[in-house]
Design a protein around this nucleic acid. Structure first.
Lengths: 242, 242
DNA sequence: GGAATAGTGTCTATAAGACAATATCCT
DNA sequence: AGGATATTGTCTTATAGACACTATTCC
């Protein structure tokens, strides 16, 4: 593409070909996890000038020496704040504007990351999990990060309805009720158990591990994902969650 | 985002904060039109060093003075090569890599644009419509533009199956058979007429203009879009086109 | 037995798809 | 009339959803 062969070079660009073809870039990662049935967002915490805590998304620049792609850059950002396996990572959208950064035209590549559910919400230094309720983080985030979270969450809410994304928010072994819990956490509404069972027990998408989760009730069968973790797609949405 | 508050600043970045947070950027637009039932791609033509013609996508840089957003930049690119109304424009994906441009790490924002079907494929200087068959442009494109076309076309092929995108590839007034023609052009496969009718004549998505297209057969009713051109979504895919 | 959650059976609703049957124009 | 394309009718299939019912555990 473009490179030195780009069309529409203005006089200034020809004189100084590097200057106007660049912009400030950052890669921002919106990371979700479901902990005890609650949707949580990974943020880093720092000290604002007024002493109040400041919450923001893991974000950073591209490092030419390390990043072979934008996905690499996103993964590297996330890895600074969580060592957990990243079960799903996808680019959501790139936003650009002259106003986001005081230094000039800037551009953000927004990523959606999903981590497996774990009981402990252990984090690195200056990192926190904050609740997300009604589609909004409980603590307001700095800059335009609330907007970025909204974009990533919209993607998740939509895609969870026709794909295997729910299982990426669950641990390796899970019950069918766990899937329902994920829907509730993300959509604040859930498809009927009958529909979830019909959908997820079709074909060989899941494997019955033979294990069971026991409580003070009938034990539930524990399943794991088949098909080497490939995301699979269905051809209908759930209507009850619209 | 990032701004001056970005984490993970290396020593070099602190010393020269502008340098490593920027990269070469271009916005590339993949524009489709259906002309006489044939899917066509808009390219610009130039002379290669060996005298052979070189085809590439409309692409260019962000102009801080003119562009308030990436969408603006994409629209501006496309406007240089076609004055037709842009009936649909959406961002597909941003690709980045150290190899695409010899000057260093570069980044492309890929857009998908749809233009209304018209008989004449009139174009501006150095601009051509080339056929797309089997998902590939008839002429190979320069750089990695074939890959970008593939990405945009994949998006179109998918989205056409559950949205009103087909009508954006048609003129203001069209018949239901025209919709079928668009499916054939894009997917090289088509849902049954019964299904198309059931879907598009539901609710008040289309308005019967009362006009008819006449030929050597029964005339077909001409429809136009209702609902102020908002893209609408269905909750199922066509299975016959999978 | 009773509480609690897991899982099944069955009927309805919706929309896609197959396919045959009409309808309406032109020549 | 005959050709051509548009449009409708009807039956089948697939899956979501409602809802009642059964199953299995712990106490």
């Amino acid at each position: 593409m473009t490179g030195r062969h780009s069309n529409a070079e203005t006089k200034a660009e020809v004189e100084n070909p590097m200057s106007l073809s660049t912009a400030l870039i950052s890669v921002d990662v919106v990371t979700f996890q479901v902990i005890n049935g609650q949707l949580m967002l990974l943020v880093k915490e720092s000290q604002g000038t007024d002493g109040k805590p400041l919450y923001m998304l893991p974000a950073g620049r591209i490092e030419p020496r390390h990043d072979q792609s934008l996905d690499d850059a996103a993964e590297r950002q996330l890895r600074m704040y969580s060592q957990q396996t990243i079960s799903h990572l996808e680019q959501v959208e790139t936003l650009g504007s002259p106003d986001r950064d005081s230094r000039g035209w800037s551009l953000t590549v927004v990523y959606l990351a999903l981590l497996s559910s774990i009981k402990t919400s252990g984090t690195c230094q200056n990192t926190r999990w904050i609740k997300v309720t009604d589609g909004t983080p409980d603590m307001p985030l700095a800059y335009d990060h609330n907007k970025l979270v909204r974009k990533a969450l919209d993607r998740l809410k939509n895609k969870i309805q026709y794909s295997s994304l729910p299982v990426y928010l669950l641990p390796e072994e899970f019950t069918l009720s766990d899937i329902q819990t994920v829907f509730a956490a993300v959509l604040e509404k859930t498809p009927p158990m009958r529909s979830i069972r019909n959908r997820f027990l079709k074909e060989d998408l899941l494997i019955d591990t033979g294990h069971q989760r026991r409580g003070s009730n009938r034990p539930a069968a524990l399943y794991k994902v088949n098909k080497n973790s490939q995301t699979w797609l269905f051809d209908r949405l759930y209507l009850s969650t619209q």
